[in-house]
């Protein structure tokens, strides 16, 4: 979609992406209902919800680089939805653990969170996502002010790192898959670090005071 889509086109695009983002869940539901998830369906459901959480985090983090590189500024209008879908799949992922794995045995859950590093980081990532989901509305952006809102939402970098670590630490031996996610995340964070360094240099050369304020939309 070159240039800027019309408001009407954008609304249609948003609706289409909204439905598309539900496809992984629909696929799992269909598979569970038709006994097509293999011998251990609960494992497939838990893992799939987890990987989709990670994928939506990466998609969310890919919006800004894609905008800068391709000039598709309208992508920004989809970012909140991607972020909320990351939270949505993360909440379902956590729910499968609490319900199907532990059956709400809170003592065992608390022990797990403290004792098992991969659960500790996974749980921490989810907890950190909660304030971001709660402050995702326009009203909350206004209430917090763009600068504070942005500072808060930078925790998504930490969340993504914790998410990849969670995956890395749970696999038994073959780390191919978590490595792929780690490299993608490394790229998405690396390009930001590079831009930041370049921007600082440019400002130094120009003799300006570094400007720290940016609008929430330009992260």
């Amino acid at each position: 979609m070159p240039g800027q889509p019309s408001p009407k086109q954008l609304a249609a695009l948003k609706a289409a992406v909204f439905v598309l983002c539900l496809a992984p869940l629909a696929g799992l539901a269909w598979g569970a209902f038709h006994d097509a998830l293999g011998a251990n369906p609960i494992e497939v459901i838990t893992r799939d919800l987890g990987t989709w959480t990670l994928r939506f985090l990466l998609i969310t983090l890919a919006v800004t680089p894609a905008r800068k590189l391709l000039g598709w500024h309208w992508l920004l209008r989809l970012r909140r939805m991607f972020g909320l879908y990351a939270f949505f799949y993360g909440a379902l992922h956590l729910a499968t653990y609490l319900w199907l794995d532990q059956f709400f045995d809170w003592m065992a859950i608390a022990k797990d969170i403290v004792k098992r590093p991969f659960i500790t980081v996974g749980f921490a990532a989810f907890v950190l996502m909660v304030p971001l989901a709660l402050t995702s509305t326009n009203a909350m952006v206004r209430r917090l002010g763009g600068r504070r809102w942005q500072r808060l939402h930078r925790s998504v970098y930490a969340i993504a790192v914790l998410g990849v670590l969670h995956y890395w630490w749970l696999v038994k031996k073959d780390i191919t898959q978590p490595l792929i996610y780690a490299l993608l995340l490394g790229g998405l964070l690396g390009v930001r670090a590079w831009w930041l360094a370049r921007e600082k240099q440019r400002q130094l050369r120009a003799g300006f005071q570094p400007v720290t304020y940016t609008s929430p939309g330009s992260r």
Binding site: G27, W30, G31, G38
Partner: peptide
């Protein structure tokens, strides 16, 4: 096809 899409 669905199972394939899910990696099964």
């Amino acid at each position: 096809s669905i199972a394939g899409a899910l990696g099964l």
